[in-house]
Design a binder for these strands. Structure first.
Lengths: 347, 347
DNA sequence: CTGAAAGCGCTAACAA
DNA sequence: TTGTTAGCGCTTTCAG
């Protein structure tokens, strides 16, 4: 931001020129001091520093950016911050970026395919050094749109094999582990909330696949009646899907919400219907939202390594930014570690 | 972001110079076309536009910013996005900013006083045009730190009468209205969850004041036993405070959570203890979080005008940015409209 | 209607 | 160790 001083009357901010004049040295010397260049005589440095303090000089970041070609800003594009998962992801990215001396500009796409595609070519985020992009509306057919002329890191499970670095969680393995966890606790009829019919890629499909793998490995049958589809993954959807399943009179001894929000919604319906959790039924979520620690009972869930996703996304992006111009490496896929967070909802 | 083209081999992005050369005109003419300057001959415009397309020219925002003194970026500083209230606030600010052609950079302070103060003088956000600041750790004693040399808008209830524009909700009136709503429905013993002992300013104090005013106006006694203090305003705090009140055997016919998160936590405990909501007890929240529409029962709450807060904050900030250098107006306080959102938890 | 040129504030090569 | 100077890419007087 532009600097001015004195209350009421605004003065033009001090420049390197001003400081140089004040200190009786050249502009280069001031620049050296500001940038902690080593070869500056101590007395000179002190003199310049004094001038800097008196004039309350602060470097003009815009000018610096123009000169250096870097802004120190990265962009993060998510569907919407109102969804806890993305809010917590953004939180993680901001923290990780801060550790690397970067600052984060956030765009919301609403999960709309067209807006996502438009964003990629938008001139709006052109003063950031790169983009961390979490698409929701685009799918693998749109992957070519990801071939953008600036550093980008892709997040999530909508698109695989695109032309950019990709950081994502081990959805299949994690869902399989979650299901195995339930099976190991003696559960045999595990309902799933949040399936997307006919989807082959995407979080829902991958997690459902993990679920099926676990059943198969344990020799348990896959029962279509235990699959509760939902359109979106909001709490309300979990609520409705669970209610529908109860109404159908399906028997089950555990519920696996494909994300925490769904699981919390389902849990609510179960308790309303007088099911005891975990006595009558186990409930498992996915995402490890903050909230799951505080629900009643606290929700057992899969920690997809969100902190690691954020940290790695920033790191990978930074690597690409640093590699500008050099013969670039082929896009890599980075998978994060997951862990089951065992809480009260599973015994 | 820097533009390059061709897969694999990165080329320097096209500049105005390049386009001018390609089109056989001067750089000024290209600039005119890019900026939709009116007095350009149609044929010239077409010629230039062709060159722009061929070279995939995109203006360098950094250079433009240096020249114009504006970046089109504003910063938003909040405690943390993991708290739904701030995530939804950020959502609103991003949307409002977008309507004004601005983009938003988000900083997290953790609600820590020292970090908040440090942020205000940090050089990190110097490439934004202004700041929307929602402090949580600072208090009125720190108000002088808000006298910064760049446009700023203050949000929230921590500091009043500071040297900057302030956008805030009508806490006292809104809490009073909420309480009156409960009273009008026949409630006489209204428990409060989330009070902060000894606080005189801040959301908790103001909302408690509104509660007391409503009681007084209705001729109802203020009973200290009905006040449930909490340190923070997380779901868990609501849960604990409600539990404590039940353990103390206090009688009540309504619960007013000073924010939604508290109310949802309290609601959970009540249901666990077999209270029927709203049959046995009414529950009222404050904030109108998205989630309150989907809880069971859906939570009646106060909509503090968050969308309006976001919109107004951006608008006021933009006014200040525009008024740079001119004799500035004294700081103003802007109060938003509130509304009771009546849902299932109150009958 | 279009061109020439100055300069936003800074960094960095090159000189001294 | 410090000074001089040429741009980074753009907007914007001022001429023509």
């Amino acid at each position: 931001m532009e600097i001015a001083k004195d209350v009421g009357r605004r003065t033009a901010p001090a420049t390197l020129q001003d400081v140089a004049a004040r200190a009786g040295v050249s502009i280069k010397t001031v620049s050296n001091v500001v940038n902690d260049y080593t070869h500056v005589r101590a007395t000179t440095r002190a003199k310049v520093q004094a001038a800097i303090d008196e004039l309350k000089y602060q470097p003009n970041m815009t000018a610096r950016s123009l000169r250096s070609g870097r802004t120190g800003v990265i962009s993060l594009a998510v569907p919407e911050l109102s969804l806890s998962y993305f809010a917590e992801l953004a939180d993680g990215v901001i923290r990780a970026a801060e550790r690397h001396g970067l600052v984060v500009l956030i765009e919301q796409t609403g999960g709309d395919r067209d807006r996502e595609i438009e964003l990629l070519t938008s001139t709006r985020l052109h003063l950031s050094d790169g983009l961390i992009f979490s698409p929701l509306g685009m799918d693998s057919d749109d992957a070519h749109h990801l071939d953008v002329p600036y550093p980008m890191v892709l997040l999530g499970e909508r698109i695989f094999g695109g032309p950019v670095d990709h950081v994502t969680m081990r959805n299949v393995e994690a869902a399989r582990a979650a299901t195995e966890f339930l099976i190991s606790r003696g559960r045999k009829r595990i309902a799933v909330i949040g399936a997307h019919e006919g989807e082959v890629v995407g979080s829902a499909a991958l997690r459902l696949q993990g679920y099926r793998e676990a059943l198969a490995a344990a020799g348990l049958p896959f029962d279509e009646a235990l699959i509760g589809p939902t359109g979106l993954w909001h709490r309300h959807d979990g609520l409705v899907a669970m209610k529908a399943m109860l109404d159908r009179g399906v028997e089950f001894d555990a519920v696996f919400g494909l994300n925490d929000t769904l699981a919390l919604g389902a849990m609510r319906v179960l308790q309303e219907a007088r099911y005891k959790i975990p006595d009558d039924v186990f409930v498992m979520g996915f995402d490890d939202l903050d909230e799951t620690q505080y629900s009643l009972p606290a929700l057992t869930t899969v920690d997809p390594g969100r902190a690691e996703i954020a940290e790695m996304a920033v790191k990978v992006l930074l690597d690409r930014i640093g590699a500008r111009g050099s013969r670039s490496q082929p896009p890599l896929q980075h998978l994060t570690e997951f862990a089951i967070r065992e809480r009260e909802s599973t015994g």
